[in-house]
Design a protein around this nucleic acid. Sequence first.
DNA 1: CGTCTTTGACCGGCGC
DNA 2: GCGCCGGTCAAAGACG
Length: 156
Amino acid sequence: MDNNRQILFPSSSSSDFKVSSSNSFLDVKKGDILRTPNKESSSKKGGKESKKQHRYVFQTRSHVDILDDGYRWRKYGEKSVKNNKFPRSYYRCSYRGCNVKKQIQRHSMDEQIVITTYEGVHIHPVEKSTESFEQILRNFQYTTKSNPIMYLQQPN
DNA sequence: CGTCTTTGACCGGCGC
DNA sequence: GCGCCGGTCAAAGACG
């Protein structure tokens, strides 16, 4: 594992980053932000699921793109997106009934930056201890932008 | 033996 | 309507 990772926070003024160094990592299970809306997918096989869930965008600098956040993920897809030379990976939480997804993708221009997008809220506790990460999380606040995307931002 | 990756196909939305 | 594009499925293999 990499002990020298950094979390990059997108600042409100576009392309500038604020940097925070840390040893350990994520998890996004802040209950106060939202509750999971019960999606109601009719009996459609392979149909769509609810598209609007809460999203958390996390940017980290690391040589490894797999971040251990204490949950178990199973990969269900990988696609290359236009404008990005690196493919994007799709993960889903392994816990039965937990529909949390996440996407992992490298920055096209800076290979060291990994963008992790979480979607949804876990309905079960973490399986590993991620106290260090939660401590880091506690030091930051969530800010909503126009979209249901939530950014992590460093308080002044 | 169970769990998770890999990989191409598939599907829906959207723009032309 | 068609084709591109991004997201998901699912079968088979890898790995412990």
